[in-house]
Design a binder for these strands. Structure first.
Lengths: 331, 331
DNA sequence: CTGTTAGCGCATTCAT
DNA sequence: ATGAATGCGCTAACAG
């Protein structure tokens, strides 16, 4: 492979001259520049990006770390990240964290291959996160709270969101409301559970443990938990699912058991993923400002890169999206 | 930021010794090794990945280039790519091609930042693709045919797939079949159109230009084209959409016009995206072996990296998935 | 305007 | 077992 040296040699100039010509920098005569460019063309010269990054000690790249590249991650969020990053002349790469310590994600977090990173991956341990940030990498975590200095967070007000959802159910006349949550160690899930409980307490409804089931934030998990609920015999009049995926799994379970939604039971989700307006009935849910979360996350990283001081935590609010899966309960 | 030099200094050894100790290489005494590791810990040392890549002239990373990171791209395909890449000790990063020549994608294609790349992005020009491959980068293109040496292709048998779809419609008694296609410069679209035409010819059905509309492979585009078709007054008895997204947009248009699918009109899509089994009615479509495409693409790159000779083109077959959006036409 | 030179951080060869 | 020296490919001061 041709290097800048080869180009310089063929053009009959010094390496630095070639570099200047190639980068449109410095005060290079039109003539020499063309000679260099021509030589580069002939040799199929391509610059080695890593060498130049190394020299400049800057990559101009931000990594978005996701638990699974192929997962149904929030496309709106990515859009937010991407828009702001490119608008500021930064590149964005996405990488996955599957594979634990061997994962691509860890490689990028630990080896100074990027100028900053946004983490939305529960399987990246707090330890790794902390180490990376101690290494001086500007870091914004989106899906939980990591204790430690120089770790920044953008989160959605999960507690308030689920509070609003459950209170809405109550206002529609529901008193028997189940909660099908995600993994109990999930930060988001804890907050959502708390909001659920708060709403019950406020309206003096006793929480019933038989109506507190656990899923894993997947369709499959929602399906299973819902089957379990049905098998228990006594159905609540409404269910608040920890996220939309699980609610959609639940929809499936009800369909199989010929229980009609929302006529027989009302359900509500969380997230407002794209699918929720396509399922039948369309899903009432709590919408997260995903684009804004992504946009803010990059913005913070850019601030950090400029050496500015920022808060350690930012919280964005949610919005109830009313569709067809909740029915007012008469009487 | 601490470099290996600092570590060596603190540990009181030479840089090379530190390097060996850190990489578990060479014959380093247990004692020195521990000294080095300890120093690294104290200094929060992180190796600079780019420097080491530069030295080794190898990145062990493959790029997956997508037209839009936030788009509803094929998660199965990514899974295939990811599985095979990680299984072979390669890292995978995804980057977007929006932004034309300034895009992150082009940066990765042109600057030797990765060992190989898989392109699934119509907005990466053939010129760029060719330049990159001339630069010596192993490249597999998935969504079209690029003329030139050393460019490899994995494609799905679009023509056969759409032929099967349309023939199925004909077997169900449909004679008036419209085609709502994608952008006319899309390679996939051309092939799908050809399959449609072949099926008509085989069954001696005349192609009607009024029933050949153009969308852009988006929901929006399918919606608009369908509205146009409806506005024309005379409906066909079935529609073959160039992809599922457009078919789903069409579903929306029919719903608004109170035209029932499949009672009044049958529709069929292409791709078998996740959404298609959730829309109502569920969508009959042509399934692409997406996982296999992704897996094969990486596999080819690995072969290339090992200096093996491979074919320039691979074609995988499709499968008709029958759901509820097509009704047999009586009489 | 152009050439010389000195690293960026690391892996590695060759001495010791 | 360890150290000194070299260079991966490039950029950027500095000199001319």
């Amino acid at each position: 492979m041709a290097t800048i040296k080869d180009v310089a040699k063929l053009a009959g100039v010094a390496v630095s001259t070639a570099s200047y010509a190639l980068n449109n920098n410095g005060r290079i005569s039109q003539e020499t520049k063309e000679k260099v460019l021509e030589a580069a063309r002939v040799l199929h010269y391509r610059k080695n990006g890593m060498a130049s990054d190394l020299k400049r000690t800057r990559t101009n790249t931000i990594a978005l770390i996701l638990s699974d590249l192929s997962g149904p991650f929030y496309s709106e969020l990515i859009k937010g990240v991407q828009d702001i990053a490119t608008a500021n002349g930064f590149d964005l790469i996405a990488c996955s964290s599957i594979g634990g310590t061997q994962s691509t994600a860890v490689k990028f977090l630990m080896e100074k291959r990027v100028d900053g990173a946004i983490i939305l991956a529960n399987n990246i341990s707090d330890t790794v996160t902390l180490q990376a940030s101690q290494g001086g990498l500007p870091l914004v975590v989106l899906d939980r709270k990591v204790q430690g200095e120089h770790v920044y967070h953008v989160e959605v007000d999960n507690e308030d969101g689920s509070f609003k959802a459950v209170e809405y159910l109550i206002q529609q006349g529901h008193r028997h409301i189940a909660f099908i949550g995600g993994p109990s160690d999930s930060y988001d899930n804890k907050k959502r559970l708390k909001g659920y409980q708060k709403a019950l307490v406020k309206h003096q409804i006793a929480e019933q443990s038989k109506w507190n089931l656990k899923g894993d934030f997947t369709k499959q998990g929602g399906y299973k938990a819902t089957r379990l609920l049905i098998a228990q015999g006594e159905l609540p009049s409404a269910i608040f699912y920890g996220n939309d995926e699980m609610a959609i799994g639940g929809l499936q379970a009800f369909k199989e058991s010929r229980i009609r939604v929302p006529e027989d039971i009302s359900i509500i989700g969380f997230d407002d993923i794209q699918l929720s307006e396509y399922v039948s009935p369309t899903l009432t849910t709590v919408k997260q400002p995903k684009y804004e979360v992504g946009a803010l996350a990059v913005h913070l990283i850019l601030q950090l890169l400029e050496g500015k001081q920022i808060n350690e935590q930012y919280k964005l609010s949610t919005e109830l999206v009313i569709r067809d899966s909740v029915l007012a309960r008469k009487g």
